[in-house]
Design a protein around this nucleic acid. Sequence first.
DNA 1: CTGAAAGCGCTTACAG
DNA 2: CTGAAAGCGCTTACAG
Lengths: 340, 340
Amino acid sequence: MTVRIEDVARLSGVSTATVSRALRGLPGVGGRTRELVLQAAKTLGYTPSPTASSLASGRTHSIGLIQPDMSRWFFSTILECAEQTFRKAGYDALVYSLPDYLGPKRQRFKARDLVGKVDAVLVLSLFFDKQEEAELRSLGVPAVFVSVRQKGYSHVGINDGQAAAQACRHLITLGHKTIGHLSGQTNDLCPFAPSQRRRDGWKQTLTRFNLECSDSLDEAVTIMTASNGYLATKRLLDRRPDITAIMASSDEMAMGAIQAIRERGLAVGRDISVIGIDGHDLGRPFGLTTVAQPVRKQGVTAAEVALKAIEGDLALKTIIFPTKLIERATVGPPPAGRIR
Amino acid sequence: MTVRIEDVARLSGVSTATVSRALRGLPGVGGRTRELVLQAAKTLGYTPSPTASSLASGRTHSIGLIQPDMSRWFFSTILECAEQTFRKAGYDALVYSLPDYLGPKRQRFKARDLVGKVDAVLVLSLFFDKQEEAELRSLGVPAVFVSVRQKGYSHVGINDGQAAAQACRHLITLGHKTIGHLSGQTNDLCPFAPSQRRRDGWKQTLTRFNLECSDSLDEAVTIMTASNGYLATKRLLDRRPDITAIMASSDEMAMGAIQAIRERGLAVGRDISVIGIDGHDLGRPFGLTTVAQPVRKQGVTAAEVALKAIEGDLALKTIIFPTKLIERATVGPPPAGRIR
DNA sequence: CTGAAAGCGCTTACAG
DNA sequence: CTGAAAGCGCTTACAG
């Protein structure tokens, strides 16, 4: 029904081998011959069958994008930038979501779904255990990890501990002494999770400045959404009404915190300051002070690393981007007459 | 290197044809034989080559997800739900972004990138012209349109005019008489665009209630982002400082409007009310009043319609979901002593 | 219920 | 520089 390589070969009077070479721009084809083939292909409106060429060449020209949930800003932003980078290089983006990756009956990554379908994969914010890492390896293609580290693989991310320290120092500099923290998942399952390191950054900074950093100042959630941040903040304020500032492990959690604070009739940035981490697009209209990470750059860079790996550059790379404090309205000095 | 169907055939002592049938659960395989094959496949850890089976069967088991930009909430949320629905049915999601779809040097959809790679496509919020529609048709697979209508295709969405009317009526009921509007792109290129219909809904409602609806009350943007909403609101308030309420064509624009209003030292919900459309996840912490649409349901439903089409049910469907007013803090009655 | 064989549409040594 | 032919690993009439 559709036009095949043979049709092009016939029209241009050469073999299918030559057509294949000419169309892909391979060397060793006469200038005149190439012209002929290109012309014939154009005339017929020929598009090579991707599955046939994959089967024959062993390359799929598509990349697996494995991540928890693309409806969340951080993931979707990285995915979008990666997709564009891959597309420009002639690769398709095959997304693969693992939404229940933190739940009790945790959904594990299965290589079976991706085997033979991709030339490389990007893994975002997922903590692979031994089993999953074995599955990943069984794919037999290069992988680059974004935002989480996995040893034996290239990694693109930020220094999470440092980002948290940056946020914490900002609050301390303004005079805050009782600083609450909203953590992401920090259990044993993912000791190297960004949320764990952000929590460590908070803790270490408080310690360095001789400030309180007891567990009662920390409230953890599973997934770092606004609504979880909201609930965590209510618990935190119930327990520690003396808090004058909250740093959240993500901007979305910070937004939830703001909601909870306002509901108590307190003024954000006056009664209680709030700072986030991420640099969420909607942080601006929110007036949210935050430590921003270059999300889009990470997406592009991770894709580039994957592309290079496909081309044979298997050297392990670790690319860490700097973060940057963005001062807006949700952080101010602690209230003067606040009861301790 | 990897295990092929022939290996399974040899181990189980049957032909590759039988292995193929047994593994896919096709009828006409003896119970005992099936057992044998399944066992052998398991022992060998056999996974069929997807490209080989695609080439032989003509089916790819993947779906194209064509949309403007998955870094934006509405699209990524639909994509996530669609991906899950497709995955459960054994299909992969191949995302395809067209980020400059509204720019001056507009990027057009090219079938070439997708031909032979998908069994169906979902198209979100894209306005296909004749040329693009022809490209789409040339893919030779069923397509379902989400959030935009395209004649000749199934469609999943909401009644945009009605949603806007709902928002407008809410403001009018509270006593607002001078209601500004933040539009999305409303040019000739996309006369059936949701943003066009939302604008119409605003206009018609004002007319029905004998209120002013001049063009000076409407400010249009290209892409409905928060920052565009912010800029549009500044222009709007410069021109019409007598406005007591703004309805935005999207929640993200509404958030930008809120930012602009606050920057003028005005109180949102008291001096100027703001209502959006969408039901954005972050509308809640924002306290944003909005007309919500069931975004996730649309993603699931669109995927289901596509799946049915693949199975042969080509009947054109139009599925319209109801919207719902969510009252939060950004809307209140107009200020009493406001100078007209 | 099962198998032999053609066929899906390319790519790639290999030979010239 | 070019071509004949094998091969990629399945599926699917067709025959039995």
